[in-house]
Structures are given as C-alpha cells and as structure tokens.
C-alpha cells in the first residue's frame, strides 16, 4: 500500500511541479466549452439543449490531452523499467498512475463544472446528475485511456494513434453520461444511466490495469 501511494504521490508531484499540466487541462476544458456560444450563437435555449453534450465531449478531449504522457516520460527515461522490476506488481503501478491522472484531470474538471454549467446555461435540474455522472465516468475515462497510453509506447505518431484507439472506447461512457443528464432534465429518472456508468467503472477497474500492464510489458521487452 505504501509503495502504491508512493507512486501516486510521485506522479502528483511531477504533474504539479510542471503545474501547467492540470491548469492546461482545465483551461482547455473551459475554452472548448466557451467556443460553443460563439459557434452556435448565444441563444439560451440552444445552449441549454447542447450543454450536457458539450461539457461531456470537452471532458473526454481534455482527459485525452494528458493521456499520451501517462507512461511516456517514464518509458523514455528508463524509470518504467525500474518500476517494472520493483516489488509492486506492474498492474498496481499502472493503477497508481491512473489514480494520479484522474486527480490531475478528472477532479479539476469536476471542480470547473459549476462554472461551465452557468456559462452554457445548463438546466439546473441536470446539475447534480451531471456531477454524479462525471464522478462515475471520468475515472472510467482514465482507466480506458491508460490502456491506450500503454499501447502506444514506442509507436510512430503516438498522439494521433492514441486518439484513434481511445475515442471509440470512450463513446459508451459519453452516451450514458449525456443520457443521464438529458433524462433528468426531461423529467425521467437517471438511475439506469448512472447504474450503467457505475457498471462500466466496476468492469474497468480490474481489467484496465491488467490490460495496461500487459501492454507495458510488451513495450519493455
């Protein structure tokens, strides 16, 4: 457990020392959302209609921004090899990095959500369900994304390839994430959607570190 936390702490320190990483993610999130009133016009009804979708798409893209470097810097400077030989199993190493990734992307996203809900005129009924859905969905995004991040180590055009690999797998999370908010705004219960999001998280929690570790081992061979 101590080793696990040590890796989490290390990654957090690295991310926050660069400082720009988390800031960049949140800024991207906010800026992307702000583009929409300019693009589709500021009419409140239209914004309210698209707000859940826009916020979720921006969350997806922002999550992907920092995925490429999840394992890459450690891979390139040899730290990953050392971690692989450490007593902590590679699956837990991957999990620790995923936790750190979420803390530096998913969590700031959640904190920025109230601001965006206001800017995009999100219907107030939908707000808490949006928060709940993001809370359940963003860790899944980090988990799935980690698989992609591990697969592209040493690949050409890794960044673009990562998007191609990861975005299709993100789509179900997006569908149910937006669906939950739309449901509750329309007066229907969002329980099914939230349950499915929770289910995806439960499935991804053991499987993603396992797959990511397998990919990491391939990269280190």
């Amino acid at each position: 457990m101590n080793r696990f936390l040590a890796i989490v702490r290390r990654d957090l320190r690295l991310a926050l020392r660069q400082g720009s990483d988390s800031m960049m993610v949140v800024m991207f999130f906010v800026l992307t959302c702000i583009l929409f009133p300019f693009g589709v016009g500021p009419e409140p009804n239209i914004l309210a209609r698209i707000a859940p979708g826009v916020i979720w798409v921006a969350a997806l893209l922002a999550s992907m921004l920092s995925l490429e470097r999840l394992f890459l810097t450690d891979y390139e400077d040899g730290a990953l090899e050392l971690l692989a030989t450490a007593p902590l199993p590679l699956e837990f190493v991957a999990m620790a990095k995923i936790v750190a990734h979420w803390l530096t992307t998913g969590l700031p996203l959640l904190i920025a959500t109230p601001l965006l809900a206001i800017l995009l005129n999100l219907h107030p009924d939908g707000f808490w369900v949006l928060v709940a859905a993001l809370l359940l969905g963003t860790p899944t995004l980090s988990l799935i994304g980690a698989i992609g991040a591990a697969l592209i180590l040493g690949a050409r055009r890794g960044g673009v390839l990562l998007s191609l690999l990861v975005l299709p797998l993100y789509i179900p999370v997006l569908i149910f994430g937006v669906g939950a908010v739309d449901a509750v705004i329309g007066g229907f219960p969002a329980n099914t959607h939230l349950l499915i999001l929770a289910g995806m998280l439960v499935v991804a929690l053991p499987l993603a570190p396992f797959a990511a570790a397998a990919a990491l081992r391939q990269a280190l061979e």
Partner: peptide, 16 residues
C-alpha cells in the same frame, strides 16, 4: 465503434 476498432487495430499494428 466496431469499424473504429478495426481501423485502430490496423493502424496500431503498423505503427511500430
């Protein structure tokens, strides 16, 4: 999504 999985697979195996 299946189509993208196929295309992703093809891109990935040629990326190394």
């Amino acid at each position: 999504v299946l189509l993208f999985l196929y295309l992703g697979y093809i891109a990935l195996i040629h990326a190394f």
